[in-house]
Each structure stands twice: as structure tokens, then as C-alpha cells.
Amino acid sequence: MTEFTLLICDDSSMARKQLLRALPSGWPAQVFHAADGQVGLELLRQKSIDLVLLDLTMPVLDGYGMLAAIRREGLSCQVVVVSGDIQDEAVRRVTELGALAFLQKPVDPAILMRTLVDVGLYDPAARSGLAQGAEEPQPSFRDSFQEVVNVAMGQAAALLAKVLGVYVRLPVPNVNLMEVGELQMALAQAGNEKRLVTVSQGYIAGGISGEALLIFHDSEIADVARLMHWQPDQSSPMELLLDLSCVLIGACLRGIAAQLNLPFSQGHPQILSHDGELAQCAQLEGVRWQRTLAVELCYGIEGYDIHFDLLLLFSEDSVPLIQRNIAYLME
């Protein structure tokens, strides 16, 4: 029997581990791994790969670029996209680029099996165990939490895309445990360089506390207002930003909460700074922390010169509980 070959292409070792565990039990497939689309392409050029399980949001070369290269070079493989970017436009684009199916992260093993059967890539009768080469990745805490945020970020973008009728460009989340002083200096530097408006919103969840900062470029507020069909007689531009912040921050926190089984309670959003004065960030409740688990997401709206940065700042005391709940995901 000819061995089936499979490539899991995702920058997150946690996502690769989850996919490996979600594969049909007893499937006689040899599995390869790649952490970005460029490495994945090199493997496709060197080896005969039957199926690629492909993420979209990756560094170096993303999933869209890899799909386009596979088509352009005529590489012989089938592709199923497994992504946290669940925007309708994302599904449409990957289908147009030749993907057989689109699955939402974190993937449900039953849905994965049914999809593989439906597209003719898996025969439930052929069961003899995974071939060699399928070593299970061992993700770090940072990598694991980054993947949790990646899934939540995609859910938030899908909601924002529907509310605004746009396509939201997603970044690779940046997760770091850093000194609060470092954060304050970075924010102060940003405030010195650009005119910014920052919305702050606190959140708590059984042992976890944090502060969300949504940072807008002052010059883009008018574009955001037009995109949201704002009328001067309805509300002020600042109220508009507060509404948008509630949508984006709330959706992202709900996505994290659903995965970690930790529902968040959110405070009222407020304008923390205006006209580029980010010095007030030094007055954050989080300044009492020595360190913070900082998550940075840089969203962009395709077709518009609109960008905004979302910072999720978790207290140092929150980290052990987050670690424990992430460990449950891998059991």
C-alpha cells in the first residue's frame, strides 16, 4: 500500500500538536511539519505530499501566499485550510485559490475526519497507525497562549468585518512577559512620535485581571467615522470609538474566555489619552504590577488607511492560572 503523506503547516507548535491529535486514529499517514509557508513550499518541492493542512496567518509567507505559489508552480497536492481567520472573505479567497475545504480553529476531530472522507482523502477502512515522522510538538507557554489569542483574534475580526462590511487584515499575535516599566517607555515613545487616541477597558475573570488598550491614529478617526456611517447629530466621534472598542475588545476576550473556560467581566471603556498624550498610560491600574503578560495585535482594514493596535495586558498574578487552563487544552 502506498503511504499517504501529510504536511501540517502552521507557525504555532500548539496548533500543530492539536492537529496531530485530531487526525483520525490509526490513519497510516506520514506527517511532516512546517512553521511557515516558505518552509512548507520547500517541502512540497522536495517531497511528494498528498495533503496540506494549512494555516493562514503565518510569518515569512502566509497561507494565501502559499496557496498562490502552489497554483502558480503546479505543485501536486491537495489543501485543506485550518485557520482562526473565519471571515467570510477569507473562506471565499482560499476557495478561489484552490483549497478543498475550510475548517475553523481549534479543529473538531469529528469534523476533520468527515471533511477528509468527503473530499476522498481518508478511508476509514485503512487503519494501521501513523507512520514514523509524526513526533508530537512540545509547545512553550508563550506559543500556546499566542495560539489561543490567534483564535480569539480571528473571531473578533470576523465580527468586526460583519459590522463594518470590510475585510480585516490579521497579524501574527505578539506575546511577551515584560517589565511594566518597559511597556510604559514604549507607550511614551509611541505618543511622542504620533498623534494617538487610546481607549482603555479593564477586565477580570476569577483570578485573572488585566487592562485592554485600543490605540487609534488620530488622523484615521474621520475615516473610521465614515466607515461606520457616523452622523454628527447622532453622537461624537469619541463615542463612536468607544462603541467600536467595545465590539473588538469584547469579542477578543470572549474568544479567549471560551477556550480557557474563564468568562471575563469587563469594565466601562474610557478615553485614556487624546492628541498623542500617552503619558497618562502611566496611571494604569497595571502600573502596580511588576511585570505584565502583554499581547499586541495590529489590525488593519483592507482598502482603507485605517490601522489600530490592541494591547491586552494581563497582571503577573494571572499567568499561573492561564498556564493551568492552557494545560487542560492539551490533555
Results as ranks from 00 to 15, higher is better:
274 H>W: 04
124 P>W: 02
21 R>E: 14
195 R>S: 14
254 R>S: 15
82 V>P: 02
311 L>R: 14
298 C>D: 09
154 G>H: 00
8 I>H: 01
215 I>V: 15
56 L>Q: 08
214 L>D: 08
2 T>G: 02
319 V>C: 00
165 G>Q: 10
268 H>F: 07
19 L>P: 01
31 V>P: 02
202 G>C: 03
155 Q>F: 07
24 P>T: 09
68 A>D: 15
242 L>T: 14
139 P>G: 08
195 R>G: 10
253 L>C: 11
123 D>C: 06
150 N>H: 14
49 I>M: 01
179 E>H: 13
153 M>C: 12
285 E>R: 15
119 V>Y: 08
58 M>K: 09
260 L>V: 12
161 A>G: 11
180 V>E: 11
112 L>G: 13
279 A>C: 01
323 Q>G: 12
148 V>L: 00
286 G>C: 05
50 D>F: 02
208 I>T: 11
134 A>F: 07
80 V>P: 08
310 L>N: 07
30 Q>V: 15
243 D>M: 06
205 A>Q: 04
46 Q>I: 11
273 S>D: 15
174 N>S: 14
118 D>L: 02
284 L>K: 01
168 V>S: 00
256 I>A: 07
210 G>N: 10
265 S>G: 14
189 Q>F: 13
145 F>K: 00
189 Q>G: 06
163 V>C: 11
43 L>G: 00
319 V>R: 01
229 H>R: 15
112 L>V: 08
263 P>F: 04
114 R>C: 03
239 E>T: 05
191 G>T: 09
51 L>D: 11
21 R>M: 13
212 A>F: 03
204 I>F: 08
299 Y>G: 02
20 L>S: 07
167 Y>C: 11
121 L>Q: 03
153 M>K: 14
252 C>T: 15
29 A>V: 15
58 M>P: 06
157 A>N: 12
89 E>V: 07
28 P>G: 12
318 S>N: 10
234 Q>M: 10
131 A>I: 01
167 Y>R: 14
327 A>G: 03
200 S>D: 04
322 I>C: 10
45 R>N: 08
295 V>Y: 02
203 Y>G: 00
116 L>K: 05
202 G>D: 13
57 T>P: 04
264 F>Y: 08
173 P>S: 06
144 S>P: 10
147 E>K: 00
208 I>R: 08
38 Q>T: 07
111 I>M: 09
55 D>P: 04
